[in-house]
Simulated scan of single mutants.
Amino acid sequence: MDIDRYLGPGHRTTALVTSHGLAVADAAVRLAEAGRFHDEREKLAGELSRRWGAPYHVGLQTVRLRTGAEEIPEPWAELSLRVGDVYLWQPERPREHGRWVALGVADLDPCDEIQLLLVVTDTDPP
């Protein structure tokens, strides 16, 4: 994966895969598809780990809870509302720029489509 195309000031969130019709789907269908998205995340995380080393595995529930009491910087505030946990790397190549790469499945909102998200940001995780 060439993250150079995601580099720039601030942050960028990209949906690598998006479901279609799951916002109104039966709960069992949605659950099965969420599992497929998590499998895709694991597969891509394995590929990125071979390139950048083992990621941090970061749960975002405490960040989500903190958004009600304090200012959480973007993209972390929005990400915590959509994603339960992420794999997080700070690859060697962009490290001089302080970049982080996060990979997660946005499946928390049952009224929204499921997405496999890639986030590149220069904002340190909270």
Results as ranks from 00 to 15, higher is better:
45 A>P: 04
101 V>G: 02
67 T>P: 07
102 A>V: 02
37 F>D: 00
70 E>V: 06
80 S>C: 10
37 F>S: 02
112 D>M: 10
67 T>W: 08
38 H>G: 07
55 P>T: 03
79 L>V: 01
122 D>Y: 07
112 D>H: 12
42 E>T: 15
24 V>Q: 13
44 L>I: 13
75 P>T: 07
60 L>Q: 05
110 P>M: 08
1 M>R: 12
53 G>A: 11
117 L>W: 14
13 T>G: 11
89 W>V: 00
110 P>L: 13
76 W>N: 06
25 A>T: 01
38 H>R: 15
95 R>W: 13
87 Y>W: 10
77 A>K: 13
11 H>I: 05
85 D>H: 04
108 L>Y: 05
90 Q>F: 06
5 R>N: 06
125 P>D: 09
86 V>G: 00
119 V>Q: 05
32 A>F: 07
122 D>W: 08
76 W>S: 06
26 D>L: 11
77 A>M: 11
20 H>Y: 15
90 Q>K: 09
55 P>D: 09
31 L>I: 08
49 S>G: 15
50 R>Y: 01
68 G>D: 09
13 T>E: 13
70 E>T: 09
75 P>Q: 08
70 E>M: 01
22 L>E: 01
59 G>Q: 03
43 K>H: 10
69 A>C: 09
53 G>P: 11
112 D>A: 15
94 P>F: 03
111 C>K: 11
63 V>L: 04
103 L>N: 01
56 Y>Q: 12
74 E>N: 09
99 R>H: 11
